[in-house]
Design a protein around this nucleic acid. Sequence first.
DNA 1: CGACGATAGTTAAGCACATAACCAATGTGT
DNA 2: ACACATTGGTTATGTGCTTAACTATCGTCG
Lengths: 164, 164
Amino acid sequence: MDFEHANALNQAIRLLSLRHRARAASLLAPLGLHTGQEALLLELDRTGPMIQAQLSEALGCEPPSVTLMTRKLEAGGHIRRTPAPSDKRASIVELTDSGKALVDQVKQLWCALAEETVGGPPAETVADLPGILKTLTDNVDTKRPTTQAAPARSSAVRSPTKTF
Amino acid sequence: MDFEHANALNQAIRLLSLRHRARAASLLAPLGLHTGQEALLLELDRTGPMIQAQLSEALGCEPPSVTLMTRKLEAGGHIRRTPAPSDKRASIVELTDSGKALVDQVKQLWCALAEETVGGPPAETVADLPGILKTLTDNVDTKRPTTQAAPARSSAVRSPTKTF
DNA sequence: CGACGATAGTTAAGCACATAACCAATGTGT
DNA sequence: ACACATTGGTTATGTGCTTAACTATCGTCG
């Protein structure tokens, strides 16, 4: 691949990162949330109470990051951290009522952001986008030992209808 | 759009951001560069000497960011900042010889990263990827007053051949 | 048992970003 | 000419994220 195309791609990814993050930040700000915290809340809502190590794995970021995020979300009253009875090292984290209420708002914002993101002309390949992006991510992910790189493309993304 | 799809998309973008950035960081580290600095050097190589405000615009980040980046790159000896003769506020920044040499290495890494990113199964839509990502970026970009949102998709991305 | 590697979590330091506030120079209008 | 908004740049502060170094607990194995 020549440098022109390579740069176009890398730059496109970089810019999308910046803009999508910035837009998310501006949407989340009214709720008193910062970017990244919403992922934690949503994951917690999706899977239920879990340990920080599991959160770290699910969110794809390192343990120190979840330490800081959980601390701030706890200070905000949106989550609660209680020591795990079976393992004195671990602390299980769960949504508070305030957090659950917040999640509902976040979900709406999240839908709005996604619609806004894929809005416009290309309604065709839009259904494949998560799969495509996931493939790129796996390609670039060094930690994951390349498990199921190929089948990932058509795994859980194929929705019955392309209309969404 | 239901929340499932929305979350799949947003999460995919978020993860791609993290991983692509992380991979870039690990590739750039041996050269003594941090993520984001390579974009500045490449832009400088592409367009020639320019003012920080122009850099800020080209890189899509805010002036304070370029202030810090330029300062560090200058400390590293890769760029040079000289006061602009026509405008006493502005300082024009340009590549040093060391910087030019570095750019060549960065270009190679950049190609490797792009190939690695799009490597694997989906060789079909790969040519459209920059355009697709740009469309998403524009959709989400708040600063740009929605100029040419629709035509952007098929503007400068259509390469004569899809093979790359 | 007791030693020892793996695991859960935290702290510290560093980077790229962002916004807000500020300074200095430019340019424009009356 | 002079006031004044605009623009280029910096500083201060704060966020998410990272890696490295550290503590405390858990399991396992000799």
